[in-house]
């Protein structure tokens, strides 16, 4: 048996490496699918909640839209207003007790994280949509684009670009908060760590390793999203083809973002 701290860390890594890897993989799967599905749910909700209700539209359409927008509001409030750990118990055991459905733990985990993220994303994306200047929408309307075309081609690309930092936040939160899913026995990183710690009662050493893994995961995500932001901004130079004196000239112009509007 090792007798130093690092000795134990190495010993535990050797002994339980597979558990850590499997737990990490599951955590990453839950976080990625949860964030992506949550983003899509949030997107749909945000679009539905920003559809303008026209005064002279059809009555039935107006009523349906009002009901839909109300229900979506309820969903957002309920999911944001209750802890995820409580939701997991209700969904997992509720399905079993009342509908006799034994949802596989991983499926339940992804469902819960997705719907949670969806509720937060709905508000984040709605904020992103509102932050895009009204003039962009009017510009699109003025050339005949529909609400849907305006959203998909003009508003959402700008809204999404503006909220990447917040999406990154949600992703990081999902990596960490998926640990609460251990209450429904999902084999994610925290759950696996608990199993690994049990045998030798080396809680400190095991959770030191666990903390390091979480940190590496979240740090990587932050970096990747930073690169994505740069990519979406495009190059900050453009090319002019031809000049007044020479029609085949190619001029590279560097102009930084910001400055004049």
């Amino acid at each position: 048996m090792p007798d130093t701290f690092f000795g134990w860390v190495i010993f535990l890594l050797n002994e339980y490496g597979d558990l850590f890897i499997q737990g990490t993989v599951n955590t990453v799967i839950i976080a990625i699918t949860g964030t992506i599905l949550g983003f899509l749910i949030g997107l749909l909700i945000a679009i539905a909640r920003t559809i303008p209700i026209l005064k002279n539209g059809f009555l039935i359409k107006k009523i349906l839209l009002k009901i839909l927008q109300f229900l979506l509001g309820v969903y957002v409030e309920v999911v944001r207003g209750t802890p995820m750990i409580v939701q997991s118990m209700i969904v997992y055991y509720g399905a079993l007790q009342y509908f006799n459905i034994d949802i596989p733990a991983m499926t339940a985990a992804i469902l819960i994280v997705s719907f949670n993220t969806g509720a937060y994303m709905a508000e984040i994306i709605r904020g992103g949509i509102i932050s895009v200047d009204r003039g962009q929408t009017e510009g699109a309307y003025s050339i005949g684009m529909t609400h849907w075309q305006t959203m998909t081609s003009v508003v959402l690309p700008q809204a999404v670009r503006n909220i990447i930092p917040s999406i990154g936040n949600e992703f990081v939160v999902n990596i960490k908060d998926s640990s609460v899913l251990n209450v429904i026995s999902v084999a994610e990183l925290f759950f696996m760590s608990k199993s690994a710690a049990g045998t030798y009662l080396k809680y400190f050493e095991v959770f030191f390793i666990t903390a390091c893994i979480y940190l590496i995961l979240t740090f990587t995500v932050t970096k990747i999203l930073g690169l994505l932001e740069k990519y979406m901004d495009g190059p900050n130079e453009f090319i002019i083809h031809g000049s007044q004196s020479n029609s085949s000239a190619v001029i590279h112009v560097h102009k930084n973002d910001g400055g004049e509007k």
Binding site: D133, G135, Q136, E138, G139, A140, Y141, S142, I143, G144, M145, T146, S153, V154, P157, Q158, R161, F238
Partner: peptide, 22 residues
């Protein structure tokens, strides 16, 4: 409405070019 607006275009004080496009 969409058809009408293609026929009757608009130029705004604040330009309203799409910022996410060239």
């Amino acid at each position: 409405l969409s058809q009408y607006r293609t026929k009757v275009g608009m130029v705004f004080q604040q330009f309203n070019l799409f910022n996410n496009m060239t």
